[in-house]
Design a protein around this nucleic acid. Sequence first.
DNA 1: GTCTATAAAGCGATAGAC
DNA 2: GTCTATCGCTTTATAGAC
Lengths: 188, 188
Amino acid sequence: MAKPVVDRAGLLPLLAEVFRSHGYEGATLALISQATGLGKGSLYHFFPGGKAQMAADVLAEIDGWFEVHIFAPLRESDDPARAVAAMVGAVDSYFRSGHRMCLVGVIALGASRDTFAAQVQDYFKRWNDALALALRRSGLSASAARRRSTDALITIQGALVLARASGDSRMFGQAMAEMTTRLLAKPD
Amino acid sequence: MAKPVVDRAGLLPLLAEVFRSHGYEGATLALISQATGLGKGSLYHFFPGGKAQMAADVLAEIDGWFEVHIFAPLRESDDPARAVAAMVGAVDSYFRSGHRMCLVGVIALGASRDTFAAQVQDYFKRWNDALALALRRSGLSASAARRRSTDALITIQGALVLARASGDSRMFGQAMAEMTTRLLAKPD
DNA sequence: GTCTATAAAGCGATAGAC
DNA sequence: GTCTATCGCTTTATAGAC
């Protein structure tokens, strides 16, 4: 029996791009219908909770991707320098060198922030904890590791905002490079 | 003759807070009407261009505030270290130590970004140019000054995003302190 | 599982009385 | 200058045929 062109799982990346590009409020069902090629009826078949469920499921999938490809490697690696380098590479690749926005950040700044506050908060906390753990393994104190870890997350989000705002994505790569240097510098 | 409670100029800060809190799309005329105490008729009397004009005028006022209190002092100061310290102080005060969002950043990430792209781009470019100029006066090369200046803008925006996303505004002050250290460090 | 038709509510914007 | 009433449109969401 032939698989449909998109099943429910294959739908999520398409929804994610619509939310990324237009924000939660700007992502109308008309846009989503166009991006997926599915009518509203079909969309509500897959997501009975409507737009809110679509966004929540997309956030959950993103969270899962980062858990597997970023957080877990940071926690489990026995080579902190390599783990950090791998994270930076994965981040640069995921955000298309600054051309792609962070949906979690977009949601955090939008009008719907309260609806998804728990998911947003958890995402950044787990990232921060995983990175701080890796940095601690490289010999940093707990407080220094936390400081550098938070600084890195701030740099990633800020670089995405500024790259988008100034229409210049080159600064993203530059920021990632400087961030890596600061992450791997010898203890102050 | 008695002045009205709010004139047109006094309206802009109220509008700004609504846009900050709800984003451009989330800032409905009903919310704006409630925040200002004015009916839709009165709002359209002051802003014939409707919501788009309200946001454009608010952005222009914000731009003007930064021009006077941040950009011009950076350009004109003959003491770069003091100018940077003054900027950090003004930024911390303006953003209420991380409790208040940057409307320009919020707009840049929202669905209406294309409508205000020119204003957003100009704001960050003038800030970056002014800060880089001040850093050059402190003895940095043009490229190093630009690099540090961009890093500072990234840190401010990123710290606002992360403070909002994680509901912890303390990291904003910490980020501003580290940013200041990097800005005023001796040349690499 | 997909579609069209439509409901119910909210949106930005306008008209016109006062 | 402020208001209420309302227009025309878009929104999310539902109903029901196929």
